[in-house]
Design a binder for these strands. Structure first.
Ligand SMILES: [Mn+2]
Ligand SMILES: [Mn+2]
Ligand SMILES: [Mn+2]
Ligand SMILES: [Mn+2]
Lengths: 222, 222
DNA sequence: AAATATTTTTAGGTTAACCTAATATTATTA
DNA sequence: TAATAATATTAGGTTAACCTAAAAATATTT
């Protein structure tokens, strides 16, 4: 009887309406979630089925005890994720809000506890907070991911490990079929002038690669 | 033309199949995602529609250039979220894997960059890592959330702020209607022996609350 | 109390994402 | 090569989550 992401959002909206106005009405929930009233009625009937709300048509929507508990828990998740994005990572409020509404549905107790602790940790240790801020600023976008070298950048005698094969599907399939799979070790045997072709050895076999092909092979020197 | 969470997962699965085996087949994608082959065919046709894969029936599934880019990006998100859960927060691999597959679809560039930076920060600063581990261990579960006091725990003259009203829907509605809304300040005027009733003043009005009711009002001393 | 406006409910429809079961295809093996 | 096994595809169906438009029920004004 686990709720879907959507129903968790409805429950949370009802919870907020009850707390803010004392009761939840179809219209207000609809507005809060940016859906039509008819969608709310449908969702509320599902929640009623599941035992999370009381609802008789014409009346207000009311959370049951279990409903309240679930809503409370979801809301606490929301709070901690938002706090993490906002205070620790410095994500823009606008974005943070939206991301939070997605992430809050993908949490378990362990994650919740650890994330809470992390927020507290940063709050209590402003020196760490400061240090991280400086550290993060020094990372300009793009510096972190996809920083692998490609095969064509190395020379005779280098021993390399294949990390990834890029390029279009057909080329990639061909290269992988030759044995250039992630994890494979290769040794450069010879590089022709201008880098084309590059001869390599892997698993005892020789392979001659065009420069264009070598560029598709992301490697790490070992 | 934004992909749904599900289609992103299909794309990622195809990406992995291509990288591991050189090509992606319906059956293997189905196995990887724990769905039936017919579901894969349907999803692949949608991806083809959107220009992310090439597929002619009977042939392999192949990522197009855009498809590869999106898959790569999704995969990088997956990596960084997993790394965060696993290395920074210490979430169990099993759980971390599952949570990651949910969270990876709720990220933007800013979040990705900041989270990457955070992982690096912890990796590079093992002292901080250590310090956080100790800090987190000292937080036993439940210590963090829901630690509010309730109205019945205070005495004459205390000035309090209402944080939240709990209890069943009807009671809560009644209390909120009396003006006991989150944020409201109240002053305790008198507490009868055994704590029942509790008389309070808010917005210049007097209110007499049963002990049972007072217990539902979570407050903070100010 | 009528008339008008707001809100809720119902009826009926679409789409994504699943499924089962039946029918092609394509590979393997005898 | 024929029989068998494995894969892929189609056909047809379900469910959640949305929608529009119309009808019914409530509130608010004249
Ligand atoms: Mn949400
Ligand atoms: Mn996923
Ligand atoms: Mn999600
Ligand atoms: Mn219907």
């Amino acid at each position: 009887m686990a709720l879907t992401e959507t129903l968790e959002d409805y429950l949370q909206a009802i919870f907020h309406e009850e707390n803010e106005k004392g009761m939840a009405r179809v219209k207000d929930v609809a507005k809060k979630l940016a859906v039509r009233a008819s969608s709310v009625v449908e969702a509320v009937n599902r929640l009623k089925e599941a035992g999370y709300v009381l609802y008789e048509k014409g009346d207000f929507i009311r959370l049951t005890e279990p409903g309240q508990e679930v809503a409370q828990r979801t809301f606490e998740r929301n709070l901690v994720v938002y706090r993490f994005l906002d205070q620790v990572l410095g994500v823009e409020p606008e974005h943070a809000r939206k991301l939070t509404c997605g992430i809050e549905h993908h949490m378990d107790r362990q994650f919740f506890d650890a994330l809470s602790a992390l927020c507290f940790f940063f709050e209590r240790n402003s020196d760490v907070q400061e240090k991280f801020r400086r550290f993060a600023d020094s990372y300009e976008k793009g510096m972190i991911c996809d920083m692998y070298a490609t095969l064509d950048q190395f020379g005779k005698g280098d021993t390399l490990k294949v990390i990834k094969v890029s390029g279009d599907a057909f080329l990639r399939q061909r290269l992988i079929a030759m044995g250039l799979t992630p994890g494979q070790e290769i040794v450069i045997e010879r590089v022709a002038p201008l880098g084309d072709p590059v001869d390599v050895v892997l698993r005892g076999y020789h392979l001659s690669l065009r420069k264009e092909e070598a560029k598709c092979i992301k490697v790490e020197k070992i």
